[in-house]
Computed example of a mutant assay.
Amino acid sequence: MASADAEGLHLECGGDPIVVPRERVESAVRHGWALTAHQAVGCRWPAVVVVLPGDAAPVLSRPWVYTAFSRADRHLSVVHGVEQALPRAVAEVPARPRTTRLPTLLAPQVPPMAEA
């Protein structure tokens, strides 16, 4: 999206500018695709829109917010209905401990004692 104003939604399609009239945006424009934050890990895009519906509040955490928000290179838009859950998740909600075998795999192996 290039911009939006009272006239409508100003887009670029294949380098050509088009204007979708305001009253036709809902019926004429569809999202191209969407990913969950977990699916987006490791990817980056010039612009990202993070949508947080009200029912997302219980699962928000600082690591999740970091993952979702850090996918954007130049522009990030956040649409949310989670009220104070977003600032609370960033400031207060501790991350759940990760469950991984990595520490066990990296721990030095102690050879068994030889019997005398």
Rank of each mutant, 00 (worst) to 15 (best):
I18A: 15
A56Q: 02
D55H: 12
H80G: 05
V59T: 13
E7F: 11
A68D: 03
A114V: 07
A85N: 01
L52R: 01
Q84N: 14
V90P: 01
D55C: 11
R22P: 02
P111H: 07
V48N: 02
V49M: 08
V110T: 10
A6K: 06
P53N: 08
E7A: 14
V110R: 03
F69H: 02
A2L: 12
L102P: 01
Y66V: 05
V29S: 06
R88I: 14
R98T: 15
A34S: 15
P94Q: 12
T67E: 03
G15F: 07
A28Q: 12
D55G: 08
P108F: 10
A89Y: 01
G15R: 03
L52M: 10
G54K: 04
V25L: 08
A47E: 14
V79Q: 00
V29G: 04
C13F: 15
E115Q: 08
E83V: 07
V79H: 01
Q109L: 13
D5C: 11
R98M: 15
P111L: 10
A28N: 10
P63A: 05
E12C: 09
L76M: 07
V41D: 01
Q84E: 15
A68E: 00
A116P: 04
L106N: 05
P94S: 12
M1I: 12
E83K: 02
A72H: 03
S61Q: 04
A28P: 00
R22F: 14
L52N: 03
L106K: 00
E23Y: 09
V65M: 05
A68W: 01
S61H: 05
R22Y: 14
G32M: 06
C43N: 09
R44T: 15
G14I: 05
L35K: 03
Q84P: 00
L35Q: 06
P58C: 10
L60G: 01
A4I: 12
D73G: 06
V51N: 06
G32T: 10
E26G: 09
P17F: 00
T100R: 04
E83M: 07
E92G: 03
A89H: 03
V93Y: 02
R101Q: 13
